[in-house]
């Protein structure tokens, strides 16, 4: 228990210390920045509270795009992994294609999707979908196939069908890997959604707002959006961890 507290207090204390040093201008001194280049935390907070309505609207746009894209991407990635499990020859090709997708730079992907879709939301969902497929298909494939020795034999002994083996063995076995992929994907999804907004044919979303404010030199405004994006990321990550805790209590990572 004490150790748990310490584990929370340390990073928290570290964070607060950084904020303080930032506020009193120590960071500006080290990096040689003027306050208008790097606004202090209180300035960011005030800007944020004055602009909260728009910031939240933008946040909803970005996060909903990120989540929908992540859902699509993760689902497709998982299905590819499942197909690869049932039909190794076919599926493996699919896995390779997906990992090749993953190598496309986000910037290029955003521009491509901009041509394919005419609204900012669909472009964003398209980009996020593509970037979320790879992590899920790789991890899920691993989870579906790296089974403990003899666990399939146990199924064969009672003449279980491939489908039964899938639902009663492979599926639960890959849950920890699926959560690993979701944790990777939530960060990737938010990032990709924001970067896609840099290029999107739209004016809503945190990514556009950050880019637009920073280009106009509205640093406090830009930082306030960064704060909102980070908070949203942390909250979503936290939710996934909570769900994971309850879903895979039995797994080594949860002890």
């Amino acid at each position: 228990m004490k150790e748990k507290m310490l584990n929370i207090i340390w990073p928290l204390g570290f964070g607060i210390a950084i904020l303080l040093l930032w506020q009193v201008g120590f960071l500006h001194m080290i990096f040689g920045l003027k306050p208008y280049q790097l606004p202090v935390p209180t300035a960011i907070a005030i800007t944020l509270s004055n602009n909260l309505g728009k910031a939240l609207t933008d946040c909803v746009v970005t996060i909903s795009g990120a989540l929908i894209g992540m859902a699509f991407g993760s689902l497709i990635g998982f299905m590819i992994a499942a197909i690869a499990t049932f039909f190794p020859k076919w599926g493996y090709g699919g896995m390779i294609v997906v990992s090749a997708f993953n190598a496309i730079p986000l910037v290029a992907l955003s521009s491509i999707m901009n041509l394919w879709f005419s609204t900012g939301m669909s472009q964003k969902i398209g980009v996020v979908t593509v970037v979320c497929m790879a992590a899920m298909s790789m991890n899920a494939y691993k989870g579906l196939n790296s089974l403990k020795p003899f666990s399939v034999d146990l199924m064969h002994t009672v003449a279980a069908s491939e489908w039964t083996i899938f639902t009663k063995l492979r599926l639960p076995n890959c849950l920890p890997n699926v959560f690993t992929a979701l944790k990777i994907n939530i960060a990737t999804a938010i990032m990709a959604a924001m970067i896609s907004e840099y290029f999107a044919s739209s004016t809503s979303g945190l990514g556009f707002a950050i880019k637009d404010s920073l280009r106009k030199g509205e640093m406090a405004m830009g930082w306030s959006y960064i704060v909102v994006a980070s908070l949203a990321g942390v909250i979503l990550y936290g939710i996934i961890i909570l769900v994971e805790r309850n879903a895979i209590k039995w797994h080594a990572s949860q002890k």
Binding site: P11, F14, G32, K34, I195, I226, A229, S230, Y237
Partner: peptide
């Protein structure tokens, strides 16, 4: 409690990457 550390690093990463993306990370070099 690995997760708390992960949370902190996510905040840092999102912050940093966005900063870099916006190209405002260069310090003053007179």
């Amino acid at each position: 409690m690995k997760s708390v550390k992960k949370l902190v690093s996510i905040v840092l990463i999102i912050g940093l990457v966005t900063m870099l993306g916006a190209g405002c990370s260069s310090g003053t070099t007179k």
